[in-house]
Simulated assay, not measured.
Amino acid sequence: MDGMVGPAAPLDIPVHVALRTRDVGEARAFCQKLFYGPLQVTPVGDCSGFAFFGDVVMLGPVTVGEISYGSDVHVNIADLETAYHVLAPITGTLRSRHRGTTVLADQTRAAVYRPIGAIDLDWPGDCRLLSVKIERAALERELDAALDQRIVSPLLLGESFDLVDGPGRTWAALVRLLHAELCAEDGLAREPRMAARWRDMVVSGLALTVEHPYGDEPAGLQGPRRPRTVKRALDAMHAEPWRQFTATELAAVAGVGVRVLQESFRQHVGQSPLAYLKRLRLDGVHAELSRSDPWQVNVSEVAYRWGFTHLGRFAGAYRNRYGISPSQTLRERR
Rank of each mutant, 00 (worst) to 15 (best):
F245S: 01
V132D: 06
G257V: 07
R259W: 06
A236M: 07
A88G: 05
E185M: 13
Q40A: 10
T82W: 02
A118R: 12
L39T: 15
L274C: 10
L221M: 14
F50G: 04
D122N: 12
G158T: 03
L19H: 02
D200Y: 11
Y113V: 14
A110G: 12
R333V: 08
Q271R: 14
A172W: 04
L94Q: 03
P38S: 11
R321C: 04
Q271M: 14
A88V: 09
G92I: 11
V132H: 03
P43C: 15
V297W: 02
L130M: 11
P218R: 13
I90G: 06
A29C: 05
L221E: 12
I151C: 06
V260M: 14
C47F: 07
G49Y: 13
A233V: 10
M1T: 10
A180N: 11
L104D: 11
T63L: 02
A252W: 02
L234G: 02
A207Q: 01
S96N: 11
G223W: 06
L178E: 04
A105E: 00
Q328G: 09
V5A: 09
R232L: 05
R20I: 01
N298P: 13
S264D: 04
V112L: 00
L289R: 11
V24R: 12
A189N: 05
E26N: 03
L311I: 11
E66D: 13
Q296W: 04
I116R: 13
A219V: 14
G187M: 07
L156M: 12
L234D: 00
L277H: 05
L221Y: 15
S160V: 01
I134H: 00
D46E: 13
R190I: 00
W306V: 01
V152E: 09
G100D: 05
E159M: 01
A247H: 05
D12E: 14
A173Q: 10
W306I: 01
D2C: 08
E81L: 15
R190C: 03
A195M: 06
A247N: 12
I67K: 00
E142M: 10
N298V: 15
Y214N: 05
T248Y: 08
L221N: 08
P61T: 08
H98R: 06
A138N: 04
L157I: 10
D2W: 15
K231E: 05
V62C: 03
P89W: 12
G92T: 08
I67S: 00
S327P: 01
L178G: 04
S327N: 03
S204M: 07
V258M: 03
V112N: 00
L87S: 07
G37N: 13
G284M: 02
D12Y: 02
